[in-house]
């Protein structure tokens, strides 16, 4: 990782304090506390159904769209502000915290319109400015060279990997501070995965990134910090190197070495 600087010395971007969350009566997160650091890649790992996506969606308040879902205890602070306070506008929050979903889901519009979507709904009208941002975002998402001649084609004509990168570009276009990625490579082949990983590595300079992954190698390759969840509990959270080489908990070691999950 970045040499010379220890990961834990970065400022805190997201501070999760003793967070519990439940869908109806079933509690899926219990007393989670962890800190996401700025300009670092944090990966969430853990068996399916342990609550990784749920926690991720707590960071941009996407969970409140689900009926009966609620935070039962604790708080999430971003830049030292409790994002669940009444004065916080979830719309503004989501503009600053981008999210890339598990399944690539571009809109059935042209490639250009997909990337420009976030800008359009924010009321940006200047065509030149939009063009600029669209190109810039596609460049950052390492997609520009592949699509620059077909910006007016339907996004669904792209390959799966390209679609996923398009979704990343779409998220970058609104210039968030934090990017949440839920298994961005789950449906990609190794080459496309490598490209997305490279992209994440580059994006780290400017953004804070949280990524959920089922791929241990991937977590090891790209993240600075890793959190391991099991049955809604945070089992271990540390520098990636430590988690992978020398985990403190037995469960972590079992999971990483493939004994369960």
């Amino acid at each position: 990782m970045i040499k010379g600087k220890k990961a834990f010395t970065y400022p805190v971007a997201i501070d999760v304090k003793d967070l519990s969350f439940s869908y109806g009566k079933t509690e899926v997160l219990s007393s989670i506390s962890l800190q996401i650091l700025q300009n670092q890649v944090t990966s969430f790992i853990g068996p399916s159904g342990c609550g990784k996506s749920t926690l991720l969606r707590c960071f941009n308040r996407m969970n409140e769209l689900i009926e009966h879902a609620k935070i039962t205890q604790g708080s999430v602070l971003i830049n030292e502000l409790d994002i669940y306070e009444k004065s916080i506008d979830p719309i503004e929050l989501r503009k600053r915290i981008g999210m890339v979903f598990q399944n690539s889901n571009p809109f059935p519009k042209t490639i250009y319109q997909n990337v420009a979507y976030g800008l359009k709904i924010q009321g940006l009208k200047n065509k030149r400015k939009i063009d600029e941002i669209v190109e810039d975002s596609l460049q950052k998402a390492a997609l520009w060279d592949e699509v620059k001649d077909r910006l007016n084609e339907n996004a669904y004509e792209l390959s799966g990997g390209q679609q996923q990168r398009l979704c990343i570009a779409r998220t970058l276009a609104v210039q968030p501070e934090i990017i949440l990625m839920d298994e961005p490579c789950s449906s990609l082949d190794p080459v496309a995965t490598a490209r997305v990983e490279e992209l994440i590595f580059n994006l780290k300079q400017e953004y804070t990134i949280v990524i959920v992954t089922h791929n241990m190698q991937q977590a090891g390759r790209i993240s600075d910090l890793t959190a391991f969840f099991y049955l809604g509990k945070l089992i271990e959270f540390d520098e990636t190197k430590k988690i992978f080489i020398n985990p403190k908990m037995q469960q972590t070691e079992d999971y990483i070495s493939g004994k369960f999950g």
Binding site: N103, N105, Y117
Partner: peptide, 14 residues
Amino acid sequence: PKGFRESSLALGST
């Protein structure tokens, strides 16, 4: 698809 709604909201739309 739910994805259209979620990604629209995640991009900051009302």
